[in-house]
Design a protein around this nucleic acid. Sequence first.
DNA 1: ACTGAAAATGCCAGACC
DNA 2: GGTCTGGCATTTTCAGT
Lengths: 155, 155
Amino acid sequence: MSADSLDSIDRAILREVLRDARLTLQELSGRVNLSPSPCARRVRILEERGYISGYHAHLDEAKLGYPFSVFVSVKLAHQVDDRLQAFEQAVNAYPEVIDCWLMTGTRDYLLRVAVADLVEFEGFLTRRLTKVPGVASIESSIPIRRVKKGFSRLD
Amino acid sequence: MSADSLDSIDRAILREVLRDARLTLQELSGRVNLSPSPCARRVRILEERGYISGYHAHLDEAKLGYPFSVFVSVKLAHQVDDRLQAFEQAVNAYPEVIDCWLMTGTRDYLLRVAVADLVEFEGFLTRRLTKVPGVASIESSIPIRRVKKGFSRLD
DNA sequence: ACTGAAAATGCCAGACC
DNA sequence: GGTCTGGCATTTTCAGT
């Protein structure tokens, strides 16, 4: 079961719900040139098969009090998987951490952290990150602005 | 107009629509202990004031044929803003580029690129990125897996 | 087997309290 | 902030291709 099983109508549906998850079935079916019920069936199948993993509101982080993002590169001391799991558990518990990727190479993690200001960020570093056992080094980069905000690649 | 003007019910609403953008007003109002119409009013206000910027489906990039992500760090030759705009325009046009941030420092961009495989990634580098005028250097890092996938910070 | 149509259920928006 | 009603969307079932 892969991308091949999607026809052009399925892709059109995905494109539309990517842009607006709250489209009514009527609007959606009209846009993809189908009547409501086959359109509803296709949507349900796309959900069941996992092409659509969910529908989420997107919030304005700045308006909510977190206008600053910081990218943090974390290197763990070379130990076994226990450390990785402990680190990942901590990261998942911190609300400041929005995204986290395990990178190839030397036990490297890349994090995006959202904070109110640099004072809060310093607190995050000193009171949170450096307290996680096994953290060997930390490097921070501050973005100026977001140039492109994508949700998912579709074509 | 800032985050202060949100009370605990507003925050509860944001938390719920963040998790599921397709909740019906009935379900939503039940979860935040409100009756449907004041709940609808609050949602509308949150949308109008920009706390909620949109509702989007989240798709499974791997299932759609793009299982590999690559982080690309791009440095531009030091020139004026024309180059930045040209680069950003190009990045916005490339479907492979999901996210792009302009970083502080030396004309640095950080990109996340989604590709089918490393062959396609090489094509992206040679036929796309290196063709953009002003690109001085490119560094790629490959993640193994996504540890945390956040949508927005809320608390 | 997949598409289109129709009926019944349930949801939403507005005026009003 | 809560209640109610008219109108519409959704969903399920059923028939057609």
